[in-house]
Structure formats: structure tokens, C-alpha cells
């Protein structure tokens, strides 16, 4: 276990329960994510992973059915009673499982978030856009058509555009929800390399279906099953047979899920 006495965790979740109407999606999850670590969440469909991510940046306000109990601290601040949850969201970059190219040009997709922060200087924006697209391994493919519609890119390219857009927020916390679903294996590996570099600058939460991806990238891993956090620990330990719960072992070894 990581010692948590000195440093303030980037994210602290205490006894989190999420409900949609009468359906419980997640119950009693407590965990901490430390600064500059990659924390991965694995688990089969319907485990509550995506719901968990949604409350982190208070996207629950988008769905009136969605309610949560428990406490979430971001940089030690309780996020429930924020006056301005827009400000919170600007510091958390999110990449959705299905790519969402906003109906504007490639350039504007990436420049949107800096513009929302008030950066309007063209030269400054150019630099941000190029850097973010390079990091998302997309620059070489789109540098000649920055003015074409983002929604016209292929699925994999749109996914990388979404990653570039999340990076343009210069987030403290980057949340990736099964980013590799729509991306080919070669690009996936390139993005994984980028994530390892980004770790120096930010904290990353990685939800993934690919158990081996978690093993390659994550410092610590949590296993969610049916709305419950079954087990959590240092990734290498979990994968080298130190998992305590039989369900975790079964899932990691591919016996179900």
C-alpha cells in the first residue's frame, strides 16, 4: 500500500454510492488517487466504472436521475457544494469511450477549451493546438487539414482528437474511459507511451477493458464488479498472484468478464 500520510491525495473518495432512480450503480467505494500516479480501474461491463468517473467532475448534474452519496475531495476540497462546478471541470480532462468530435473544425475542437479560459491570441493558440495534437499522436495526420470538420475524421482519429482536446485543458487530472475502444493497436501503444510521459505533469485515472493495458501502465489498480470495489492494490502485486480475492484472480486471468 502507498503511504498517504504526508501528501494530499489528488482525489479522495469516501464511501461513494451512486444511484440512478432506484437502481444502484455503485455502492460504498472508498479510494485515494495520489498526485502523478496512473490509477487504473478494471472490471466487466456494468461494474459502475463510468458512473464513478461521471461524479468526479460533477457530470451528474447533467442527468437528473443520477444521485450520489458519500464524499469526493479534489485537492482536499469537497466537490459536493461547489458554487462553480465549471471551474472544477476545467481542471479535469475527460476522454469518453466513444469519440465525440464536436461539430467544428479540428483546430477549433482543440482551441475551444483554451478559448473558454480566455486565451484568444492566435499565435498562442497555434502553439497549444500543435502541442496537444502531437501529444495525442494525431498531428502528422491532420496538420494539413486543421480547417476541416472534426466530425469528418475517422473514428480512431476522432478519439485522438478527443484526447488532444482533453490535454488542451492542461488538466491536473486526466480521466480516460476505455480510450482504446476505437483506436487501432499501434496507435494505442503510441498513446500509452504518451500517457507515461504525461504522468510527470498530471494525475491519470484510466478505466480500461484491457487488463494488460492496466498492467502496462498503472501504478495501482482497482477491480470493480457489479457496483463494488472488490480489491485495490499496487498493479504489479495484483498481477503477480498477490490478489486476495478469488474474483480478482479469475478476472485478471480471463476466466470471466
Amino acid at each position: 500500500m502507498v503511504t498517504t500520510t504526508e501528501i494530499t491525495p489528488k482525489l479522495q473518495v469516501k464511501d461513494l454510492t451512486i444511484r440512478y432512480g432506484s437502481h444502484t450503480a455503485l455502492s460504498g467505494v472508498s479510494l485515494e488517487v495520489m498526485p502523478n500516479e496512473i490509477f487504473s480501474i478494471i472490471g466487466p461491463a456494468n461494474a459502475g466504472k463510468t458512473s464513478f468517473l461521471k461524479v468526479l467532475n460533477r457530470m451528474d448534474t447533467f442527468n437528473s436521475e443520477m444521485k450520489y452519496d458519500g464524499k469526493i475531495f479534489f485537492n482536499g476540497l469537497d466537490t459536493r457544494h461547489l458554487r462553480n462546478h465549471y471551474a472544477l471541470r476545467r481542471r479535469i480532462g475527460v476522454v469518453f469511450p466513444l469519440p465525440v468530435g464536436l461539430p467544428m473544425t479540428v483546430y477549433e475542437n482543440v482551441a475551444l477549451s483554451p478559448r473558454l479560459r480566455g486565451i484568444n491570441n492566435k499565435a498562442e493558440l497555434d502553439v497549444i493546438v500543435e502541442r496537444c495534437l502531437q501529444r495525442a499522436a494525431l498531428w502528422d495526420e491532420v496538420k494539413d487539414r486543421l480547417d476541416s470538420l472534426g466530425s469528418l475524421l475517422s473514428g480512431g482519429q476522432q478519439q485522438r482528437l478527443t484526447i488532444a482536446r482533453a490535454l488542451s485543458q492542461e488538466p491536473e487530472l486526466l480521466v480516460l474511459d476505455e480510450f482504446s475502444i476505437a483506436v487501432d493497436p499501434v496507435t494505442t501503444m503510441r498513446i500509452e507511451e504518451v500517457l507515461k510521459e504525461l504522468k510527470e505533469e498530471m494525475t491519470i485515472i484510466l478505466v480500461t477493458n484491457l487488463v494488460q493495458q492496466a498492467r502496462r501502465l498503472a501504478d495501482r489498480t482497482a477491480f470493480f464488479l457489479n457496483g463494488e470495489c472488490v480489491e485495490m492494490g499496487i498493479t504489479e502485486a495484483l498481477f503477480s498472484g498477490e490478489a486476495k480475492d478469488q474474483r480478482t484472480i479469475d478476472y485478471i486471468e480471463g476466466r470471466f468478464g
Partner: peptide, 21 residues
Amino acid sequence: DRYREAAEALGATRWQVIYKT
């Protein structure tokens, strides 16, 4: 709705979501 969700996740306010997206 995914456009609205994506723009909101970037930290856009309701009005910014409407007039930008």
C-alpha cells in the same frame, strides 16, 4: 446530447455550450 456532454466536460458553462456548440 454527447456534444453537450463533451463541451460541459471541458468546463464550458451552459451558455458557452449553447453558443459554441
